[in-house]
C-alpha cells in the first residue's frame, strides 16, 4: 500500500469508530473543500448579488465542515479538533470527492460543479438525517435545510445560463463535459461505506444515484444541455488519491498553521 493511501483501513480491521470517523471525514472534507473553492469568488463574482449569494453557500459549507470534522475529532479521540483535521492533514489524508476540489475556472464550471454536487449532497443528507447515530442525524438535519436552498439556487443558475445566450449555453455545456467524468465517484462505495450502511450510520452510496440522476436529467433537459456520453470513471478522492489541484489548495489554506505551528490564532 502506498504512503498516499496508508490511512485507508484494511477491510478486516474496521472498528465501529473507525467506520464512523472515516464516514465523517468523507462528508466533512467535501463540504470544506467545496466551501473553500466557492469562497475564492468573494469579491470577484459577476454581480454583487451573486457575490453575496456565493459567500452564503461557502459559509454554509464551511460551517457544516466545522461540525462534521468536530464530531470526527471527537470520535477519533486522539486529542485533535476540527482545525487540526482541516489544517494539519496532508492531501493523502483528505477524503473529499474529486468533484469538490475541481478549480473554479469560469463561473460556468463553478455553477455546474455546485449543481452536480448539491444534487448528490441533498440525497446524502436526507440519508444521514435518518442515521442511527443521533449526532450524525442532528448535523444532517441542519445541513439539509441549507443544502435544499443551495440546490434551488444552483438549479436556477444552470437552467438560466444553459438556456440563456449562445455563449452562456456553450460555456455551460463545456463545463458539464469537463465535470461529468467526476460524477460517478459519489456513488461508488467501498468496504467502509458498506460497513457504515450496515450499521445504519450512513446511506449506501449506490442507493443515492437514482434520485440524483432523475434530478440532474430533468434540470439539464430544462437547461437545454446534453448529457455527455463519456464514462463517469474518475475516482480516488474518497480514499485519499487526489488531483494536483488539492495540494495547491491545501498549501494556501494551511499556510499559517504550517508556517507557525506553535501559534494560536
Amino acid at each position: 500500500m502506498s504512503a498516499l493511501t496508508e490511512t485507508t483501513m484494511p477491510e478486516t480491521t474496521l472498528s465501529a469508530d473507525a467506520v464512523l470517523f472515516e464516514t465523517l471525514l468523507r462528508v466533512g472534507d467535501s463540504a470544506l473543500i467545496l466551501g473553500h473553492r466557492v469562497s475564492e469568488w468573494c469579491g470577484h463574482a459577476p454581480t454583487l448579488e451573486e457575490d453575496i449569494a456565493q459567500a452564503n453557500v461557502a459559509l454554509d459549507l464551511i460551517g457544516q465542515a466545522t461540525l462534521w470534522l468536530g464530531l470526527a475529532a471527537e470520535v477519533e479521540g486522539a486529542g485533535r479538533d476540527a482545525d487540526a483535521l482541516a489544517f494539519r492533514r496532508d492531501a493523502g489524508g483528505f477524503r473529499n470527492l474529486l468533484l469538490a476540489e475541481q478549480p473554479n475556472r469560469d463561473f460556468a464550471v463553478t455553477v455546474m460543479r455546485q449543481f452536480l454536487f448539491d444534487a448528490w449532497h441533498a440525497e446524502l443528507l436526507a440519508g444521514l438525517a435518518a442515521s442511527t447515530d443521533p449526532r450524525v442525524a442532528e448535523i444532517a438535519a441542519k445541513a439539509r435545510k441549507e443544502v435544499a436552498y443551495h440546490l434551488d439556487r444552483s438549479e436556477t443558475l444552470v437552467i438560466g445560463l444553459g438556456d440563456g445566450t449562445p455563449e452562456s449555453h456553450a460555456r455551460m455545456q463545456a463545463a458539464l463535459t469537463r465535470l461529468w467524468p467526476f460524477t460517478g465517484e459519489p456513488f461508488r462505495g467501498d468496504a467502509t461505506d458498506a460497513a457504515a450502511a450496515e450499521a445504519g450510520i450512513a446511506p449506501d452510496p449506490a442507493a443515492l444515484e437514482p434520485g440524483w440522476r432523475a434530478r440532474v436529467e430533468a434540470v439539464l433537459a430544462e437547461a437545454t444541455l446534453t448529457l455527455p456520453d463519456t464514462a463517469r470513471f474518475r475516482s480516488g478522492g474518497r480514499s485519499g488519491v487526489h488531483g494536483e489541484a488539492l495540494g495547491l489548495l491545501l498549501a494556501e489554506m494551511q499556510f499559517l498553521q504550517r508556517a507557525y505551528p506553535d501559534a494560536t490564532w
Partner: peptide
C-alpha cells in the same frame, strides 16, 4: 424568481 433568491441572500 431570482429577485426572491437574491433578496434572501442580501
Amino acid at each position: 424568481e431570482m429577485a426572491i433568491q437574491n433578496a434572501r441572500d442580501v
